[in-house]
Design a binder for these strands. Sequence first.
RNA 1: GCUCUGUUCGUAUAACGGUUAGUACGCCUGACUUUCUAUCAGGAAAUAGGGGUUCGAUUCCCCUACAGAGUACCA
Length: 511
Amino acid sequence: MQNLRVRFAPSPTGALHIGGVRTALYNYLLAKKMGGTFILRIEDTDQARYVPGAEDYIIEALRWFGIMPEEGPGIGGDYGPYRQSERKSMYGKYAQQLLDAGRAYYAFDSAEELQAQRSAFEARKEVFKYDNNTRSSMNNSLTLSADEVKSRIERGDDYTVRLKIPKDETLRINDLVRGEVNFQSNELDDKIILKSDGMPTYHLANIVDDHYMKISHVIRGEEWLPSTAHHVYLYRFLEWEDTMPEFAHLPLILKPTGKGKLGKRDGNKFGIPVFPLSWKGETEEDSFTGFREFGFDPKAVLNFLAFLGWNPGTEQEVFTLDELIKAFSVEKIGKSGARFDFDKAKWFNQQYIIASSNEDLAEVVRPLVKEKGYEVSDEFLVAFCGLMKERVNFYTDFVETGYYFFEPIREYDAKMVRKKWKTEKRPVFETMREDLLNLDDYSGLAVETCIKSFMEKHELGFGAVLPILRLGVSGTMKGPSVFDMMSLLGKEEVNARLAKAYDAFDGAQAT
RNA sequence: GCUCUGUUCGUAUAACGGUUAGUACGCCUGACUUUCUAUCAGGAAAUAGGGGUUCGAUUCCCCUACAGAGUACCA
């Protein structure tokens, strides 16, 4: 085989969906594994659906994941331009070639006429298809005289170019994921390949570009499987069939619950991200929180995505990108739709956080801390990450569930306070506070020793003392080791918190 | 409707035609622990249904059911 070249070819119609990211990932993995080239091509042939910023979003997302293409718009490469709108002049030529070869024809039917046909068929409970059956009754260069066609074109009438699908043929397609897939040509419609605005449709542009960009493998979503037959015909009629790429159609990603494939709105509906990065659309419904902003690590998301429709056949689940590249193979891609399981995504993220060093975590958490307006030393932050990393799922949890490391306690767990605090015991706890204040060494171990001797002196058990300390210092029963927490907060801070807490506890007890 | 694709615990999936049908997430129980986690040890939980082929089908074939996708001058 010659050089392996794959492309990710999204349409800039909005934020890049997580399913698109998975497609990009699989393309990337295959390219890297085989020493091939990963290419980004922007399919912007539909001006009406073009959304400004979408292209930047796509590139930013790929960069965040660390799966950057080697060729693409703004990146360079020998097969550019990489935006279809900039390749417009190429496509007309091939439409003409197809026309000349009798493999395509002009169609003059207006949108209204087509609509009328559809309605008429619908009334008979049939579905209109522009195909070898119906094209003889439509206005096209097959039914009109040559002169008529010529004059219509010269007159400037709108026309499209349609692919003339042959009659009575069986088309056999080999798909790397699904094996042999057969199509009857009579079931295929005469797809428009050149629109009346002169732009090609996806089908033509895709084939021409893949050919010129020397794409060897087309890895894309299953929604393209039905139109692959048209694509094969295009290759055949353009006489490029001998260099036609291999096809691999990926299973769909399904909604977390219920029916259907994962959609844009599912994110807001289930309160989970379905886009890599946050996106601000025109409206509330068109705005989404991304995995990044949700507090995910890009490596964890990639790992999760890799397993949505693929598995290595071993029992290993946590993979670095390099390991994924080594393990990846098209043969291991699954056939059936994979449901998006947020719990699993969460678990992957947690695995990555736990495996990260405290220093690396601090690096990621620092901007979040700054954003909240907190000012802390690097040393503090690193220690803080060490204390918290085993009890968070997302990066955002650090500053949210661990907020009390940076600002005063917002609220005490009232139920626990009522259960554990006795106002009569306050004098005893005041002596504990003093004992703590007299400590010179405020390491976790020293604090622990101090508390233990305090308990011994007053014949108190862990259950009577530790909850009070924990509540006083963090307000909640959830969190890291009390002693370590106190050590990190420091003597003065702990003392102040305890004094304040005792008052609050008394208040809570009184009500 | 038609075409294409698919169907193993709730979810993701593993299993040369021969296994007590494995693993992970989630769930339940226990251990550890001052709490929450994490960790460890257990547990419940699946081959859609029906026909074949075969000594033997999760695995191969057919039918049914269900699900998904496509059926645009969108990609």
